[in-house]
Simulated assay, not measured.
Amino acid sequence: MMFKKKYIWITLFFSIFSIALSFAQDKNRFQAIENEKIAYITKELGLTPREAQQFFPLYNEYSQTLWDIRKEKLNGTPKNSFRNGSRDILQYDAKEVEVKKEYRAKFAKVIGNARASQFFEVEQEFREHLYKSLQNRRK
């Protein structure tokens, strides 16, 4: 009986430990991708250290705002988002476009209009680069 309790506690401990380790690895992977993205954006937009120092806090706000909208799109529903019993996906897309317009203006104050507009292209290019590299790793 004592042996069974000890075995159960050891199994439980290792299960919790492996779950925690898994979450830490996912967080590290995400952080590595974010770091690579920051380096890519900095290089492609030709940001000076001063511009980068002002740009990336705005970028972090922008990124978090988009994440919140996308989570809401997948998981929740804001008020009045249902029409005839179905979710109005276009409402979320419209929110994303508004956020992008708002942040393009904020980015322009730091890096100018041309590079602020170019940012969205660079961001898309990075996603494509990331997707291709993931495809290559799977092969």
Rank of each mutant, 00 (worst) to 15 (best):
M1V: 15
M2P: 09
M2F: 09
K4H: 06
K5M: 10
I10T: 05
I10M: 03
I10L: 05
L12I: 10
L12K: 07
L12R: 04
F13C: 13
F14S: 12
F17D: 12
S18E: 07
S18H: 06
A20I: 15
A20D: 14
A20E: 12
A20R: 15
L21Q: 09
Q25K: 15
N28V: 09
R29A: 11
F30I: 09
A32V: 03
E34M: 13
E34W: 10
A39Y: 07
Y40L: 03
T42F: 05
K43F: 02
K43H: 05
T48C: 13
A52D: 11
A52R: 07
F55Y: 04
F55Q: 00
F55G: 00
F55R: 00
F56C: 11
P57W: 07
L58C: 01
Y62I: 02
Y62G: 03
S63L: 06
S63M: 05
L66H: 07
L66N: 06
L66Y: 06
E72D: 03
K73P: 04
L74N: 10
N75A: 14
N75T: 12
T77N: 15
K79T: 11
S81W: 06
S81Q: 10
F82W: 02
R83E: 12
R83A: 13
G85D: 12
S86C: 05
S86G: 11
R87P: 02
R87G: 01
R87Y: 07
D88H: 04
I89S: 11
Q91D: 09
Y92S: 05
K95M: 06
E96N: 05
E96W: 03
V97A: 09
V97E: 07
V97S: 08
V99A: 10
K100N: 07
K100R: 12
R104N: 09
R104G: 04
V110N: 09
I111L: 02
N113I: 14
A116P: 03
S117E: 13
Q118H: 12
F119C: 00
E121V: 14
E121H: 14
V122R: 08
Q124P: 01
F126I: 01
F126S: 03
H129M: 08
H129R: 10
L130N: 01
Y131K: 13
Y131V: 08
K132I: 04
K132D: 09
S133C: 03
L134V: 05
L134P: 00
R138G: 11
K139P: 00
